[in-house]
Nucleic acid binder design. Structure first.
Ligand code: MN
Ligand code: MN
Ligand code: MN
Ligand code: MN
Lengths: 224, 224
DNA sequence: ACAAATTTTTAGATTTGTCTAAATTTTAAT
DNA sequence: ATTAAAATTTAGACAAATCTAAAAATTTGT
């Protein structure tokens, strides 16, 4: 007793959103939070909550909040796996840039074929992270959360490597491109401005001055 | 004035079906024919006919029949292009067999991204035919109909090459696999049985006896 | 040409996913 | 502990895509 019901595209999008808002574990996610994230109305979320509870994908108690069941979590991980693998495919095989992939992956993540996604995984040589540095769940739902910190949180003189972005908007990613900031680049924190918390850093040997807004959306992995 | 409206997945499926039933040119396609092909009810087809006419994708006159407008034809060709390119992709890049690809392509053909399909086209080196021998329309809607004939229609001693299948069902394709009949194989018609119209042929040098049903679903290109 | 058969359309209902506006419950503030 | 504010749910509506049953138009057979 597991894949009992067909899950629609809309249901998949709700499940994914609940997961991203932390609805795994036993945290209860608010109706409003889901509505805001999905740019829909709270009443629509309530309607869907009932439907998903009916299908055994979420726990739902009126007025209390929503969280994913085990099956819901498995479903979410499967969608996220597909989304991220397609993103890697688009970048590695079709020369998409990292700011172009999300939109298309939003569509591709709903394609229903286990064989398809497993073959894509194989074609890409089983990547562990997507183009934004986010981990890719394996077929059985496991994934390694990388040891990473926001650049804005590390102390002076820290050296490391860019490993991910928090903000994945096209606008932010294009800004990073323009400033030659890319995942894999080496980085060192040279100075912190107390006044505006901007940072003077060295990236791949070149000096760069970046705002707090940028630093608080870039993940780095500190050198051992 | 061209891509005026958003075309839904359901509308795309109707457009494609009308095209395949010959609704390009000015032939009028019957409501019942469309309903049968799509395994839906005639009343649903009528409803959709009105919607598509409203959007300028089909010509529709009550009780007379349905045909595609120029925009409708362009739309159909774009969907068919996507379907067939994805089929080639699945076979060439992901080792799908030709009997497995159709189902998945039915989903992938609805992905909306011009860049995606053009890059897939490029990755595959601009194939002209899909795994079943059907021509792939180019970006601008042109395609070459191959010079081909049903094996059941050619005369005795004809020599040629298998270039396509008429029946694309998984059952038929698997049958061909089992009998080592593949596109690209050389073929020669040795003898025709008058009684049941079965054929004795030579395929890649090996003798084979095939029924009329098989011969009438295999396309060959005669040697010059 | 005209009745019978067939095809097609209409009318009305259903499901899914969404919305607005009103009612209810929970939470926060005094 | 009340009251005010905020969050959530309900009730009722709507659009899309489908269906069934009945009505209308067309085609066919004699
Ligand atoms: Mn993404
Ligand atoms: Mn990503
Ligand atoms: Mn196909
Ligand atoms: Mn095909």
């Amino acid at each position: 007793m597991e894949k009992l019901f067909f899950v629609t595209r809309s249901e998949e999008n709700y499940i994914k959103t609940i997961f991203h808002l932390g609805g795994n574990s036993s945290a209860l996610i608010a109706t409003n939070a889901i509505a805001e994230q999905m740019e829909t109305k709270p009443s629509s979320v309530t309607d869907m909550a009932k439907k998903l509870a009916e299908k055994g994908l979420v726990h739902y108690k009126k007025y209390q909040g929503i969280s994913l069941t085990d099956i819901g979590i498995k479903t979410a991980l499967s969608i996220i796996r597909k989304h991220r693998l397609w993103e890697v495919f688009l970048v590695k095989k079709l020369d998409f840039t990292w700011d172009e992939v999300h939109e298309v992956a939003e569509q591709l993540e709903h394609i229903k074929s286990e064989k398809l996604i497993d073959k894509i995984d194989e074609l890409l040589d089983f990547p562990k992270f997507d183009p934004h540095g986010d981990p890719i769940p394996s077929k059985d739902g496991k994934f390694m959360e990388r040891d990473k910190q926001l650049l804005s949180d590390v102390e002076l003189n820290t050296e490391g490597v860019c490993v991910g972005v928090k903000d994945t908007s096209a606008a932010f990613l294009k800004f990073l491109d323009k400033n030659k900031i890319a995942l894999g680049n080496t980085i060192k924190v040279l100075e912190k401005e107390d006044f505006d918390q901007s940072l003077h850093i060295e990236m791949e040997g070149k000096a760069l001055h970046i705002s707090h807004q940028i630093a608080s959306n870039l993940y780095i992995k500190k050198n051992d």
